[in-house]
């Protein structure tokens, strides 16, 4: 069984399991008619829809994360060629990471990670 078939088959098994849970709930729940409910707001009525643009802090951290994460994907193939390429591979990767960390430190000093 090659990796591709195996992963698809496992996905099938997982989805069957999830489908089984939903099927069992559908067969067993009663009343099956959904209850018209509202969001829990400490016993009061909500005064507006909750879905909204969230606080700006998340956006700055997300940008920082994306920048770092995209670059980090390079590290996966890099792990396989360290001894083949030699010392230059290690030096280049860690200089690169040092640049990224310098970026993080700059963002930190600018308050991008300040949460309150």
């Amino acid at each position: 069984m090659n990796g591709f078939t195996a992963s698809l088959a496992l996905l099938g098994v997982a989805l069957l399991g999830v489908g089984g849970v939903y099927g069992a709930a559908r067969a067993l729940r009663s009343p099956a008619e959904p209850l018209p409910a509202g969001p829990f707001e400490s016993g009061l009525e909500p005064s507006q829809h909750a879905v909204s643009r969230f606080h700006v802090r998340w956006y700055t951290v997300s940008m920082l994360f994306l920048a770092f994460d995209m670059e980090m994907v390079f590290m996966y193939p890099w792990t396989r060629v360290i001894s083949a390429v030699g010392a230059s591979a290690v030096i280049e990767m860690f200089v690169f990471l040092a640049v990224l960390v310098a970026g993080v430190l700059h963002a930190w000093r600018e308050g991008a990670l300040r949460w309150t």
Partner: peptide, 22 residues
Amino acid sequence: PNAVFSLVGGYRFVAQGLAYEL
């Protein structure tokens, strides 16, 4: 679910992910 506490919880998980994923 379009509920305040649920939404705050979801964003808290995002913050958690942004911190621990790397």
